[in-house]
């Protein structure tokens, strides 16, 4: 299932929902963006994403928000813990 939405985020949406939509579109997930629990784990159980999916999310995040996730200077385990934690990191670092 592919959800067709514009890549430009609506400012009225919550940042976490906008990010959820980006993730659903990027990975072609068969789940509605609004149905992703902001506190549920992104990696492994929960959405069942693997580290290559995480890289794909990181590339999309970098394109959309200008926030580059790097391996050396960030705690990726913490950032990728959940949709909420990733969204929070982006909001703190976006340009």
């Amino acid at each position: 299932m592919k959800i067709l939405t514009e890549p430009v985020r609506q400012t009225s949406e919550s940042p976490a929902l906008a990010l959820a939509q980006l993730i659903v579109e990027t990975l072609n997930l068969e789940v509605a963006a609004a149905a992703i629990d902001p506190d549920a784990p992104l990696f492994g159980e929960g959405l069942g994403l693997d580290s290559i999916d995480m890289l794909e999310i990181a590339l999309a995040v970098s394109q959309t928000y200008g926030v580059k996730l790097r391996a050396d200077d960030t705690d990726n385990n913490q950032i990728f813990r959940s949709l909420g934690s990733l969204s929070q990191y982006i909001q703190q670092h976006r340009v």
Partner: peptide, 13 residues
Amino acid sequence: GLGTPGAMIEIRD
């Protein structure tokens, strides 16, 4: 180390 969320990002770097 594979099996962590950031493993592929580390490979990209």
